[in-house]
């Protein structure tokens, strides 16, 4: 999907490993397709980092420049993970347990990739956010990228 630095790859792999471990922990009863499990891990990491920015925006967490910059940079890195190992053909909703991936991910792969680009851009815009108000101002765009992608490419729950 993108050309990216060694640091990004390492960060991405660490993120995947940590999150997969915790996901596997909480869902030990189900044996998910490894690609699906890895995607869940990616989403969990995205959720975790957005959570930090959201807490700052909502005033639940005090603004901390290093934490905000780290969360935003992590999001950018997570958005740039190469999808080839993650969005493996045959892992759409209905074809394998736990997946809510719509077939459009594969039939419209350019559109799907563009959604991750949008997330990377909205995340990058938050890296220098100087105070809680600036974080709040960027969160609308950031949340909008989650929503836009889920609207088009994520299937319904159950």
């Amino acid at each position: 999907m993108n050309i990216f630095s060694r640091k990004t790859i390492v960060l991405g792999i660490c993120a995947g490993v940590i999150a997969t471990a915790s996901w596997a922990d909480s869902h030990s009863a189900e044996k998910l397709n490894p690609a699906v499990a890895a995607r869940h891990a990616q989403m969990q990491m995205i959720g975790y980092n957005i959570g930090i920015l959201g807490a700052v925006a909502k005033g639940e967490m005090e603004y901390d420049a290093a934490m905000v910059a780290s969360a935003a940079a992590n999001l950018q890195a997570l958005a740039k993970l190469d999808g080839a190992t993650l969005w493996v053909a045959g892992t759409e909703q209905g074809a394998t347990a736990g997946s809510r991936a719509k077939p459009e991910i594969w039939s419209d792969s350019a559109g799907f990739a563009a959604k991750f680009d949008d997330l990377a851009m909205a995340s990058a815009a938050l890296i220098g956010a100087a105070d809680a108000a600036a974080v709040g101002a960027g969160m609308g765009d950031l949340g909008g990228t989650c929503k836009a992608c889920h609207e088009s490419y994520r299937g319904p729950k159950n």
């Binding site: 959570g51 969160m139 950031l142 929503k147």
Partner: peptide, 15 residues
């Protein structure tokens, strides 16, 4: 916050 950003308190997004 949800009405504004579409993000739930768990930071899942509206669907």
């Amino acid at each position: 916050y949800y009405f504004e950003s579409g993000l739930t308190p768990d930071y899942d997004s509206v669907g």
